[in-house]
Design a protein around this nucleic acid. Sequence first.
DNA 1: TATGTTTCCTTAATGCCTCTAAGCAAATTT
DNA 2: AAATTTGCTTAGAGGCATTAAGGAAACATA
Lengths: 243, 243
Amino acid sequence: MAAQGVSRRERIRQTTLAEIRAAARRLLIEQGPQAVTINAVAREMGMSGPALYHYYGSHEELVGAVTADFFRELTQALESARDAYPAGEHGRRLLSACRAMRQWAITHPAEFRWVFGSPITSERRPGSARELAGRDFEQVFLEEVAALWHSRPFPVPAPEELDPSIRKQLAAYAASAGLELPVEVIHVFMSCWIRLDGLLCMEMLNQLDFLFTDMEPVFEECLREIAPRLGLAYEPPPGGAAR
Amino acid sequence: MAAQGVSRRERIRQTTLAEIRAAARRLLIEQGPQAVTINAVAREMGMSGPALYHYYGSHEELVGAVTADFFRELTQALESARDAYPAGEHGRRLLSACRAMRQWAITHPAEFRWVFGSPITSERRPGSARELAGRDFEQVFLEEVAALWHSRPFPVPAPEELDPSIRKQLAAYAASAGLELPVEVIHVFMSCWIRLDGLLCMEMLNQLDFLFTDMEPVFEECLREIAPRLGLAYEPPPGGAAR
DNA sequence: TATGTTTCCTTAATGCCTCTAAGCAAATTT
DNA sequence: AAATTTGCTTAGAGGCATTAAGGAAACATA
């Protein structure tokens, strides 16, 4: 037995697994998603196609593993951006994470589309790496909004104002996620999240190409609209206009 | 020569073309997008694979033609819903068209995803059937908003309030589309459109499954938020709650 | 150290896919 | 009636996912 109970073989195997995902990513970036085939990845690795099945049981499994990688990377980018501000400044931390999300989308367009642009539910079944990584990702924003609200409650609608069905669904979510947050707070979060992520989805699907060539100010405008709903003062991005 | 200068052959050909697209659609609905292959469609038609190349030059061309079909169908659904109200009632016409869009999405989920869920720009080059059909589609909403504004101007932001970059881009769009509308009006339209379509995009990409099982009230809430921005009174859908 | 097992990889093969090529037969035009 | 166009066929190249069978090296153990 080697140190830490991890055998030499296992270490080599993990390295190979990572190398495979890296090759898949390279193909994705250089030649698009349809180029990420078992055969092409194996070729990239200098091995035969079927050899890859010793590492990932199917094409779909490889795709899922790569997706989980991207999710983790994105989540880490969000967390770094958030942690660039001290723990108490929830507003700044939140805005920073939002901007980091778009920044990651822009600097990794192929990966972003890969992660968010597939309605395919198959690889997203409960328990999969993809599903877990996805939860972590949502968590970042939700946690910060919760912290923000606890530290300085922003105005929320009265429970009676909410649509009963929406209230019920949000309550069910809060219960299943073990959240202590009032439903109205989740509602505000949900509303803001839909605005932000909806915009990014449209940008990613090229739905707004007919209107815009530069989406950066549109995104900032979205933040400017969201901020007051969370009781925040909008602040322009640190580096001036864009990046 | 037959009547109307359309030969018998040409008529048969058009029929076959339509039948091919119908077979493709059937496959899409019953077995998903990946089942829409040249070979499968040909099989469905009772002919050999290569025979289909006499009708559509490539898989991509067939996909584009099917997409254009869907776009036209959706556009027609929007127009019917709009025209269910008299020409003067722009507000009701607009809301009706919005609801029709979601209704079509719900009743034709596979087709909706097919149309909106592909970031692939290749088939969307200028002049393609898909590109033209896409413009018609956007036009429905834009036209109605324009008519609404002309008949009863809603409040718009002052030009100075708009981000200079956004203003410039919207002005460029207005010029290229030959619109007589002030940039501020286009800005309001754009803002509403992003809300509406962004929400539908997220729903389509299953991005909100973790929060909602029934998106209908969420959509209505979105309409309730949009309506006042266009100077409209929100009215619940005619049939009561949903559908 | 010798033996057995596990692991990694190979080639072969099946059956799908897109798409090109060559050719036959019927419909249409001249 | 002859020539052309059109609609289809089969054959085939090359790619894909995946399974099966087997060889060789690394490892564990007696």
